[in-house]
Design a protein around this nucleic acid. Structure first.
Ligand code: FES
Ligand code: FES
Lengths: 144, 144
DNA sequence: TCTATTTAAGATAAATTTGTCCGAAATAAG
DNA sequence: CTTATTTCGGACAAATTTATCTTAAATAGA
């Protein structure tokens, strides 16, 4: 469904959000540890998220990653997924046709569009805040 | 969403079904042409579908692929996807945790399970027959 | 200023997926 | 039986994704 990069990116962002809500900056090493992801690969993903303006990064001792508390509420899963995996999952044809278009639909178009739109609106309606809160109060987990 | 192999496999199966409904066997070459897929790769996928008992193959001159007409109605998209992509998409965690389990859910579990179940039931409820019919009467297309 | 620490960036490598090639096996037809 | 045609099977190759390594840049603190 999502790429590994996206899975790691989502988990990392949620973890950073939890820490940010407690006014703590967090290091790459800690993130990779808590998220169960390869350190250097995670670094790449976080760099990309930083360039997309979703997270902030700070170099040097006491450096690390954080998210402005005021933004946590406004960031959606959609933004994260879009930043990492692009928009093919949101607009692409389920059978890989170059263009998904109801005027020349593939055999699964009608059935597929519903699922795709479901996913899209779920991601749009899910805020980083609620995901981080669930994790913070121990309702959900990042490893298993 | 689906792998390339799965996309090709679905399109090929639908095309074979259309031909089979007209009592015609169809060659690999024709399938790859009509489905816009690489010939040799398509051969691999069709071999796999044949081993899974979803399609029949026949070697030699006048050989090719076909589907028993009586089965077309009973074959579902789910069977095809499951044969090629396995069941990770149906049961796997959206964030890649080793096990998706409501008793130790990942942050997106509750939201994700709905989407995943939607997809699953859509694939279960979509028969090869209806997809092939749509294509046969020119309502849908395999290339673009 | 110097050092230690942490992220940035680019090159490189490993793993997986996608795609190709070629000889073998089956089989229809002359 | 021989030949032409078609799928089968395994090895091989290319492309993409995932993961690592190394050096540079920033920066906090001694
Ligand atoms: S054309 Fe294939 S999903 Fe729309
Ligand atoms: S645990 Fe992640 S989707 Fe169920």
């Amino acid at each position: 469904m999502f790429s590994k990069a996206c899975e790691y990116g989502i988990k990392a962002t949620i973890y950073i959000a939890v820490k940010s809500m407690h006014q703590e900056r967090v290091s790459l090493k800690e993130i990779a540890e808590e998220v169960d992801s390869p350190v250097a690969f995670t670094a790449k993903i976080l760099q990309s998220l930083a360039r997309h303006g979703i997270i902030d990064s700070q170099k040097g001792p006491t450096g690390g990653f954080q998210i402005q508390e005021s933004k946590i509420d406004a960031i959606t899963l959609h933004q994260i997924v879009h930043a990492i995996d692009g928009d093919n999952i949101f607009n692409g044809c389920g059978l890989g046709l170059k263009q998904c278009d109801a005027s020349k639909p593939c055999p699964v178009h009608d059935k597929f569009v519903g699922i795709r739109d479901n996913l899209k609106s779920m991601l749009h309606n899910t805020s980083l805040y609620e995901l981080a809160t669930g994790l913070d109060i121990g309702l959900t987990h990042l490893k298993r």
